[in-house]
Design a protein around this nucleic acid. Structure first.
Lengths: 136, 136
DNA sequence: TTCCATGCAAACACTTTGCACCGTG
DNA sequence: CACGGTGCAAAGTGTTTGCATGGAA
């Protein structure tokens, strides 16, 4: 089955080569800014415009195929949602990014739901701090 | 005692009227973008430049007097660190911001430290999701 | 053949920087 | 009176938008 084509059509969108390429690039790169996605796409094919990248990432996120997180103070990064959700730890000292299974945040999410009626989007969560090699 | 003046001098900085005004504005506003800080400062005094706001917020953050968090996908917001640390819950539907005492994240922080050797900066943490009135 | 999608260029939002002048310490 | 701080203007980075053209269904 073609997940992308199906999801696009079900929501009244169209399947285009650009959209396939951009989703492939996100899959391959792991965590990438829109600009990095553009660079990756141009390795294989050429001729994709940066505004198409922005517009496509927005559509893919609506469809639940990718998510974005804010790993730095700069541009957001996109990653594919390949079944298992995860969140991120980012070291301020070395910029290292650690991906953590969502279940490690489930107790925290439960607490927020019970105390504040708040349903957390764990897949969007980024925790900044310092990794083992760099703590004070 | 004058906390600002002391901290500035101890770190080789100077006390200026702009720095006092900007810190007061952050205190008063709660959570504010650099631009909102500028607007607030200009209510009282005039003549502070946006680049001074950026430079000052950076200094104040180094001194531990303010912190920034990313409450939206847009500009960061600054809040004063008035003794007690807190983190934020942001509702995607209504933009509401809920401030939560840091101790509610202490079990989560402990888990991250034990499993990943990662020391989380809870005061910088922002959790996105949906508040009680807007969950699905 | 109908609309949605794309490319392009311009505009926009936010932030940083170089430099001359100002004012704290 | 030295040196860090400020204002101003310009440039840098990241993102969005209007519009004409292109192509999927």
């Amino acid at each position: 089955m073609n997940n992308l084509a199906d999801k696009l059509r079900q929501s009244g969108h169209r399947l285009t080569p650009q959209r396939e390429l951009i989703l492939q690039a996100v899959d391959k790169l792991g965590h990438a800014t829109p600009d990095e996605v553009l660079t990756e796409v141009r390795e294989h094919s050429q001729a994709v415009n940066i505004s198409t990248v922005y517009r496509t990432l927005e559509v893919l996120e609506q469809l639940g195929l990718v998510k974005h997180a804010h790993l730095s103070d700069r541009a957001p990064t996109y990653h594919s949602v390949a079944g298992h959700e995860h969140f991120h730890l980012v070291c301020r000292k070395c910029e290292r990014v650690i991906s953590v299974e969502d279940h490690e945040a489930s107790a925290f999410a439960k607490l927020l739901r019970e105390h504040h009626g708040f349903v957390a989007d764990i897949g969007h969560l980024t925790v900044h701090g310092e990794c083992a090699e760099h703590e004070e």
